[in-house]
């Protein structure tokens, strides 16, 4: 294999992970054997890469909402709790579904970093949830065209509209019955929602993920 040519059309994306300097050569991670190196993850090629990408985002969301319910913010109202619990359960279901679908191709469990989130604050929790849900919507929207298998596309579609429903519910908790609760700020003048490539999404997720993740072949 011609490594030079191969590298020229591949892209290394590394999420967060302050300590582990990693380099991808032809999609193979060469960690520096730092503390998180054992958890370093390469998403992989083709449909597997896209599903692993989704799996990484679902891991992030599931871990976040699990923490939200374990350490509820002060004066969490019943309505907050019901909605956040339901969302947590969905994200866990999405994560587990993707893990099972990927089987032995699944990346490892990612180590998350929520140090920027104040779990005692409703405002901080909902703002983070808002970020994750809208990032998820744009990520799935942008990834659809990267899938080759139509069944995977419908499976991803079955998840993305739930993320969009979550985004609306979170926006409604922040600002009830507002334009924002039906997408203002994310839906453009043509009525289109966001769509981002993995290379645009991964840097936004990076601050919340400690494990170095590379996507050597995703655009």
């Amino acid at each position: 294999m011609d490594y030079t040519q191969d590298l020229s059309r591949r892209r290394l994306l590394k999420w967060g992970g302050a300590s582990a300097a990693t380099i991808a050569v032809s999609g193979v991670l060469l960690p520096n054997f730092g503390i998180t190196a054992a958890l370093a993850a390469e998403l992989g090629d083709g449909d597997i890469g896209v599903l692993n990408y989704a799996y990484a985002l679902e891991q992030l969301e599931a871990a976040f909402y699990t923490q939200v319910l374990q350490t509820p913010f002060s004066r969490m109202q019943p309505n907050d709790r019901v909605i956040l619990t339901s969302i947590r359960d969905h994200e866990i279901a999405h994560r587990d579904f993707l893990k099972k679908a990927l089987g032995r191709n699944a990346i490892p469990a990612l180590e998350v970093d929520f140090s920027a989130v104040d779990f005692g604050s409703r405002r901080s929790v909902l703002a983070t949830a808002d970020t994750f849900e809208n990032l998820g919507v744009a990520a799935y929207n942008g990834a659809g065209q990267l899938l080759s298998n139509p069944d995977y596309l419908v499976a991803a579609g079955s998840i993305v509209s739930i993320e969009a429903r979550h985004a609306a519910a979170i926006a409604d908790l922040i600002d009830p019955y507002s334009a924002r609760s039906v997408g203002k700020g994310h839906v453009d003048a043509k009525g289109l929602d966001g769509a981002l490539q993995p290379s645009q999404v991964l840097p936004k997720a990076a601050p919340f993920i400690a494990t170095p993740v590379s996507a050597a072949t995703l655009p």
Binding site: V82, I83, S86, D89, H90, A93, H94, F97, V137, Y140, N141, G144, G157, S158, I159, V160, S161, I162, E163, A164, R165, H166, A167, A168, A169, D172, Y177, S181, V182, G183, V187, G191, L192, D193, G194, A195
Partner: peptide, 28 residues
């Protein structure tokens, strides 16, 4: 897909106004 997720945002909020959760389950 960019239209699809907008419809889903609408559906969720309309359900909310109807005092329901915005969804029927983890997968649409």
């Amino acid at each position: 897909l960019q239209i699809h997720s907008v419809e889903a945002r609408h559906a969720s909020e309309v359900r909310r106004i109807g005092l329901k959760l915005g969804w029927d389950g983890a997968f649409d």
